[in-house]
């Protein structure tokens, strides 16, 4: 039965770890903005390589302007 002393010690220790983790997160400002990260995670990184869709569209547009330029020039 005296293992109970040990087990309770363990359970309290685990609980304290979680409490400290919460307090750390709180101090770190992780709970100040609870909404924006939910949107941010859905957005693709377009830092170096642009969004595939927008890339294709931009190329398409570039092509269009080339054609219209040619028409203009020929006229």
């Amino acid at each position: 039965m005296s293992t109970i002393f040990f087990l309770i010690g363990c359970s309290v220790l685990v609980a304290i770890v979680f409490l400290l983790a919460f307090l750390w997160a709180q101090n770190n400002g992780q709970h100040t903005d609870l909404y924006t990260p939910s949107i941010r995670i859905l957005m693709d990184d377009a830092d170096d390589k642009p969004h595939p869709q927008s890339l294709s569209e931009r190329e398409g547009n570039a092509g269009d302007t080339c054609i219209s330029d040619k028409i203009l020039n020929s006229k």
């Binding site: 609980a15 979680f18 409490l19 709180q26």
Partner: peptide, 20 residues
């Protein structure tokens, strides 16, 4: 922020005390 920390500590104490 301080209030939620206080709640966290109180909740932690309350849970453990109930168990014991």
């Amino acid at each position: 922020d301080n209030l939620s920390k206080k709640i966290a500590v109180a909740g932690f104490c309350f849970g453990n005390v109930m168990l014991l």
